[in-house]
Amino acid sequence: MSDTELTVTLSGGSTADARAVVRALEPAFGSARELPADQNATVHTATFDSSAADGPAAAAQGTADPLSAPVTVTVQGTPQAVEKASSTLARTFATHDQGSASGDQERERQLILEP
């Protein structure tokens, strides 16, 4: 992972739920490199160029399609990008923080998003 990349891993829910989560992050990070598309996948991954995370925070309350089921989301990248992604998701969905891990220059946080 480069120092300007935010990786988002999603499990649970449907492909449409994964797309809704990725789209909720776009106001803060710009477009993902690719939207989740495989209808048979049980885990979806999206990456963003997190250099946009150095800019202003996303708008107060995001809007997104409602989730059909709980989605477990793991965000991994620079501490600033992970914090911005976590706060963006918390403004958009009912979110339960499941913990985080930090390295020298990288952080990982797991969230559960409720429908």
Rank of each mutant, 00 (worst) to 15 (best):
T15G: 10
L35W: 05
T47Q: 01
R19D: 13
G103C: 14
S102N: 13
V73W: 11
P66S: 06
D54E: 13
A90W: 02
L35A: 06
P70H: 08
A52M: 05
T4R: 15
L25C: 13
A24L: 04
D65F: 01
R107P: 02
E26K: 15
E34Q: 00
E106S: 14
G99V: 10
V75W: 09
Q105W: 11
L25G: 10
T78A: 11
G55V: 01
R33P: 00
D38I: 03
A59E: 06
R91Q: 02
L25D: 12
P56A: 05
T78V: 10
P79N: 12
F93E: 09
E106N: 14
D17S: 11
T45Y: 07
P56L: 03
M1Q: 02
Q110A: 09
R23C: 06
P66D: 06
F48Q: 05
P36L: 02
E108K: 05
G30M: 08
P66Y: 08
D3I: 03
A58N: 02
S102W: 13
H44L: 04
L10Y: 09
T15R: 15
R107V: 02
A90I: 00
L6M: 07
G12F: 12
R19I: 15
V8C: 00
V75I: 04
T15N: 13
G13F: 08
A101R: 13
Q80D: 11
T74M: 12
S68Q: 13
P27W: 13
V71E: 10
G30I: 12
A85K: 04
T45S: 08
T45W: 06
A46S: 08
T45P: 03
V71T: 06
T74H: 10
H44D: 11
H44E: 08
Q39R: 02
V75A: 07
Q76Y: 10
D38H: 03
E34W: 00
A90V: 00
T63P: 00
A58Q: 05
P115W: 00
E83S: 12
S31W: 04
F48L: 07
T78D: 08
N40G: 12
T92I: 06
S86P: 06
A59M: 02
A37G: 01
D3M: 14
E106H: 15
I112G: 07
T45F: 06
E26R: 11
V8P: 01
T9P: 01
I112R: 11
E114Q: 09
T45V: 12
F93R: 04
F29N: 03
E34F: 00
S11K: 05
R109C: 01
R109Y: 05
D65M: 05
G13K: 05
D104P: 11
G13W: 03
V21L: 15
L6D: 04
V75T: 12
T42M: 01
L111E: 10
P56Y: 01
A69L: 07
H44Y: 12
S2Q: 05
L89W: 00
S102C: 12
S14D: 15
A81P: 13
I112S: 09
A64V: 00
P79M: 14
A46W: 09
D97W: 11
A32N: 01
